[in-house]
Nucleic acid binder design. Structure first.
Lengths: 199, 199
DNA sequence: CCAATCAGTATCGAATCGAAACTATATTTA
DNA sequence: TAAATATAGTTTCGATTCGATACTGATTGG
């Protein structure tokens, strides 16, 4: 019986706890709790299909009631904007305000992590990413959650030409930068094993 | 500028959130919150130097007041025992009760993770562990936290003979199994880079 | 066009958490 | 040795967070 998976779990949990503490630190000036900071970070990387309370709740593993509360607070503080979707008027769209972007820029909730990974070669990072990504995908497949990935590697991603892309599920054309944002409609592309190459 | 470190961060945070939700699920029968479950898991793997409220607080990133509360609850529920240290009577030692061990056995808070990693080769896991371990160490060195590792790779670890070990810092002899438990006195052994071989 | 479904909000109560004051030991200093 | 300081843990308090439940308004389906 191999115990390494549990060691990996322990590291993930521990680093997760540390980054949570880091988020707490980052939010202390603005009186924000870790979840609020994480929500802002999420919104800064979510694509057009994923900037809703529902997707955020799925991402953070919280119920919609709780999410609604947090968004109310962030809205009151002027850190984000909520507006109605044009097509389906039940859904609320979320967008960071300039104050929200400024906050992320100032508080740098991820800088400690960037520092901590500075000495690790890109290659080792890619390998770690690959292993964790596969873990996440399997995990989500077992329990029925959304995987949250970017276009690269997504089943619905289509390249129209050198610099033109499209989401086959939603039918929209996508800009280059948008293909690198986080999407909760992500589905892993065919094949079973995805050992090599990411990028 | 390489964005892979941030991708890695995102995966760690997301898996951490999922495991937190998993801990919530595992504790629902016994009315335990995620922290309580995490505390029990920690105690099941902490060695003799690390089974104290202080170490636990350091591990979970919570203040001692908060920890004290949680331990009170777990004690009342009969899931752990608290007893005074013989030598320093200020310190409290913690030990899982049989009910506590039974709980972990029944609730299996880690089984979803083991399932999710089932298809990942031991080698890829080892590489991921190595990268994350180094991240953790650097992180802890930057901010002044305890690294929490096992004897293998610890500066104070001494092998007396084939099957006899010793902690050079505390001066105790250690049993084989104990060298594989978690210790908050862990300090990374010399050298700077530790790319290969863990095992 | 009525029922069912869905996205999000509002309300409430239980809990978690950090801050600060406190107790009891241990250690250092004078 | 006595007094000052430091340390491990507890207690108390209040703010915040979170899930559960009931609710509103929009959409979909038969």
């Amino acid at each position: 019986m191999d115990k390494h998976p549990l060691v990996l779990l322990e590291l993930v949990e521990r680093l997760g706890n540390l980054m949570r503490a880091e988020a707490r630190r980052a939010g202390v000036d603005e009186q924000l709790s870790p979840v609020h900071v994480e929500a802002l970070v999420y919104l800064s990387t979510a694509n057009r299909y994923s900037n809703t309370p529902q997707a955020l709740g799925e991402y953070l593993g919280l119920t919609k009631g709780t999410i609604s509360q947090s968004l109310l607070l962030l809205d009151r503080r002027g850190l984000l904007e909520r507006y109605q979707d044009d097509i389906d008027r039940r859904v609320v769209r979320l967008r960071l305000s300039t104050a929200g972007e400024q906050f992320l820029y100032d508080a740098q909730p991820q800088s400690a992590w960037l520092q901590a990974t500075r000495d690790i070669s890109p290659n080792r990072i890619r390998n770690a990413v690959s292993a964790l990504r596969e873990t996440l995908t399997t995990f989500q497949a077992d329990n029925d959650g959304q995987p949250f990935g970017t276009c690269v590697g997504c089943r619905h991603f289509e390249r129209l030409s050198a610099r033109a892309y499209r989401c086959g599920l939603m039918g929209d054309r996508l800009s280059g930068p948008e293909t690198r944002k986080l999407c909760w409609l992500f589905e892993m592309k065919g094949g079973s094993s995805n050992d090599e190459e990411l990028e």
